[in-house]
Simulated scan of single mutants.
Amino acid sequence: MTRFRSTWSRCWRRRCHPVRCPVVLDGEIIVAGPSGLDFDALQQRIHPAESRVRTLAERTPSRFVAFDVIALEGEDLRKEPLNRRRVRLETLLASARPPIHLTPYTRSAAVAAEWFNQFEGAGLDGVIAKSWDSPYVPGKRLWAKIKHQRTADCVVLGWRWDKYGKTLGSLLLGLYDDGGNLHYVGHTSSFDAATRKELLKKLEPLRQEPTAEEMGRRPGGLSRWSRGRDSMDWQGIRPELVCEVAYEKLQSGERFRHAARFLRWRVDKKPGDCGFDQVESPAAFDLDSIFAVRG
């Protein structure tokens, strides 16, 4: 983010209702779409061309969600317990209006469980649990993030080379749509060096460049960073292998938001049976209503 700090700062000065006192907040920048949080749109906001950044700032405006207050009016609050910092934060942002939001909190396990299930429909991938008496310690995670975990059986459609181009970097995963088209949905790379060598031996005999008729969305392709160059740093194979992976979320119904975790090979599963129909879709939930919640 710091690479584009000046552009972000100019954008925020135009859009925000400033808090009129010296303050340091901990929080997150988000972009909201029709279905809730839009991580893809947020990534597009980080662009090397300033003119493009300005256009996107108008087209997909961002918001700031405050989690914590670290310093206020010259007072360092990091050693204060969370319960006191939360009171200060709520007082500070009592009159805040969009695009500034205060994240909701609760001390009820039952309410947290309800939020965990409901808020996924607005694009959230879980809840954060913090100690009520903990100080703010920079650089350390004195909290736990509870995420949704699901599994899917995916076709291995190829592999990506490592950054040196000498060995396997990750397995590329695909799912079939209702029309029988195989689409790239993400990758898994949680392998040690010995396993990567064994995987290459397993995959090398299956080398095959997929045709346009055989594939829908492909790995690589043009991006806002490639400046016209196709990022074809992957090797396709015949779609014969199936593996089970753990994933957190299928972003925009198209690909895994984060790298999936390899669980096992599914020699009992036919590649054609690996479709999008196995992916769960949570019930939609209004994002703006989350910021009106009080625990």
Rank of each mutant, 00 (worst) to 15 (best):
H183V: 08
V111K: 12
S51R: 13
M1Y: 03
G158Y: 01
G121L: 03
E204Y: 01
D40L: 03
D177F: 02
R13T: 12
R257H: 12
T151V: 05
L142Y: 05
I128K: 07
R15A: 14
K201P: 01
V65G: 07
V24R: 12
A112P: 09
V293C: 14
S170G: 08
K140P: 03
D288R: 08
R52P: 10
H183W: 04
D192F: 01
N83E: 11
D153V: 00
L263W: 01
L199S: 11
E254L: 07
A144M: 11
S289I: 02
A94Q: 14
G174H: 04
L171M: 06
R227L: 05
S9Q: 11
Q235N: 10
Y105H: 15
S231Y: 02
Y184E: 03
T151F: 01
K202S: 10
L93F: 05
H17F: 04
T103R: 04
L56E: 14
D233I: 03
F119I: 15
E240Y: 00
D273T: 06
K202H: 07
A283V: 07
I46Q: 12
D153E: 15
T55F: 00
Q251L: 06
S9F: 01
K249G: 01
V267R: 13
F291I: 07
L171N: 10
V65K: 04
R207K: 14
R5V: 08
F276I: 02
R86E: 13
R238H: 09
R218L: 10
G36R: 07
A212D: 15
A259I: 00
L56R: 14
E244H: 02
S35I: 00
